[in-house]
Computed example of a mutant assay.
Amino acid sequence: MNSSEPRVVVIGCGSIARAHLGAIPRSCIFALCDRDLNAAHRLRDEFELDVPIFDSLEAALSATTLDCAIICTPPATHFELVHRALDSEVSILCEKPLALSAHESYSLIETARDRELTLRTSAKYRFCEGVRAAKSLLETGDAGAVRSAFVAFGSAFDFTRSWHANVALSGGGVWMDNGPHALDLARYFAGDLHLDTLLDWQCDGDLETEGHVRLLSESGIPIEILLSWTRTLGDHFAVLHCERGTLEIGWRETVWRPHKGQSRRIAGRYDKAASFAAQWQGFVGHDPRLGEEDGAHAVGLIEDIYRAASSTKCDSRATSPLCR
């Protein structure tokens, strides 16, 4: 891939594509692709782009010379689209999750390696100011080691009005939606993880709308993750309890609260646009924060969580096959 000015096609022209397009230099955008051509036209007009529009990846690949594809389609489409792009010698930045199973994810990674192409899963939170500041305190030793952590993503989301309600497209509920980011963030701070306990699981129809789990790192660090589509979960999306104090990584600010001494603000408000821009630079610059197997690790953990949910009695409202 030409790392200075890669020729990019954006596949899928919904809301997440807007975030990616806002992060990419206009000179790098060579095509838009969506089965809904009206959506592609709206996005092209919104960003005032002079690029061709296609209704399939095959059409884009046959008509345009491309270096990179950014995949912004629903999860169930990712495996096939990534596979086709790799077969055409195109590197990929894929929205989470990379695929619906660890087996599919690792097979894509192996294909990319064999073809000497770049394949990465979007991990925008690794690039936000608050996470960078917290990671710096840990790396310098000022905070000491992480002793425990809590990660939470929650908001009232009417999933019934979007493709998320179609499990054939979404692959799951709130854990398939926000789980990849939450698990990746936990792993970024604590290392490789495995599932310890399923603490709570609530469903609406065929999809889980809230799930709370406890995981353990290889060194025994306990991590709790709570995800919800039914309620807002506060000002902090990650809280790290460390040897020398507590790191609160939030939407409004990130604060270091030492056991001794005064608390101090170490980062400002979460900036989505800046995080996407930094992620894009990390992708083209081969930043190690975008690891080759990070997306696959998250998918494997989500599979473990779904297996645990399938064998556990859930909330009485649950009717999902995952909860039986």
Rank of each mutant, 00 (worst) to 15 (best):
E210S: 14
R120I: 02
S56G: 14
T73F: 01
W201E: 04
R18C: 11
M176Q: 13
R120A: 00
F157Q: 03
D271M: 11
A17C: 12
L290Y: 01
A134G: 04
Q279G: 03
D184K: 10
P321M: 03
N166L: 11
D287R: 07
G205I: 12
S3H: 14
E210P: 01
A318M: 08
P321D: 07
R115E: 08
Y125K: 08
F47K: 07
M176S: 08
A273P: 09
A40L: 09
V174C: 13
V9W: 03
D184A: 09
L198S: 08
I53G: 02
S101M: 10
E224F: 05
I92F: 02
L169Q: 13
V51S: 05
G141H: 05
L66G: 01
S122L: 03
A168M: 13
N38R: 15
C242T: 10
A85G: 04
G173R: 05
D196C: 08
T140P: 02
V146Q: 09
F157K: 12
L49A: 04
F237H: 15
E46G: 11
R257V: 07
F189P: 01
D50M: 10
N178K: 11
V131R: 02
H41W: 09
L185N: 12
A168I: 09
N38L: 14
T209I: 15
S27W: 14
V8L: 08
F47S: 05
A17E: 08
W175N: 00
N178Q: 10
P74K: 10
G220Q: 08
Q281L: 15
F153E: 03
S310E: 14
A238M: 11
F189D: 06
A40Q: 03
K135M: 07
W280F: 10
A274R: 13
T197V: 15
L227R: 05
F30E: 14
L290K: 02
A23W: 01
L207W: 05
L195A: 03
S148I: 02
L185H: 12
T64F: 10
E293W: 00
I221E: 03
L199V: 12
W163K: 13
D158L: 07
Y270L: 15
A102T: 02
G12C: 03
T230R: 11
V131G: 03
Y106I: 07
P52K: 07
A63S: 15
A143W: 01
R307C: 07
F47L: 10
H297E: 15
A296S: 06
S15T: 14
L199E: 13
C323Y: 00
R115M: 08
T118W: 09
Y270S: 06
E89W: 14
A31K: 07
H212T: 03
A23S: 09
A273N: 14
A76N: 11
G173Q: 01
L301P: 01
A145V: 14
V213Y: 03
E293R: 12
G300Q: 01
T319H: 14
F283K: 10
D206G: 06
T209C: 13
S311E: 13
T160R: 15
A123T: 09
L108K: 00
L290Q: 00
S91W: 00
Q202T: 10
F237D: 10
W229M: 12
L227K: 06
